[in-house]
Amino acid sequence: MSNTINSKESDEERLVARLQRGSEEAFVLLVQQYQQRLYKTAYGITLEREESLDIVQEVFLKVHRYIGSFKKDSNLYTWLHRMTVNESLNWIRKMKRRFKWLHRPVESEDGNDFIYPELGSEDYAPEKLFQDKEMKTILFDQMKKLPEDARAIFMLREIDGLSYDEIADILKIKRGTVSSRIFYARKRLKENLAGYFDQTT
């Protein structure tokens, strides 16, 4: 992340030029260089491992197909990232349509529907849970409960570190919407995970 910008840019330009000439080695390099970052983005939005791999694969196939029309002055990673976000959101929309009947009902406003037995047990130790696999399950469960758009926006902020303006630009929504969705996602997560964190401070 903290490489000097100049050398990184020229590296990228060189890579793009080679890709446009149809170099297979360049394509392999591209995949190796970016797959993990793109996977993180896809996984953050979908929370599904296999789907995220499919999404990343699809993005690379698109790169291969459209690299010829890629403008040299634009940023390669931005392009890849954007495609990954779009593919991920498309997948979420598709799933939502397909499994509408499985969709969870809207939670009660106070978030009281969140009860895990571990919470009340005597040897409940948040510090331990924090590193636990159990905690991961609980966390992912809660993230999946968030409305998809709020989660996607929140994850673009948390995982990719994008600013409100950058997120607004990618998703073509208002900056105000970005900030309110992030606000909402954070609030919900905190409320629903409160029991696991409060005692650690």
Partner: peptide, 8 residues
């Protein structure tokens, strides 16, 4: 607490 969730 937000920071904890975030880092998790």
């Amino acid at each position: 607490s937000h920071g904890q969730i975030s880092s998790l």
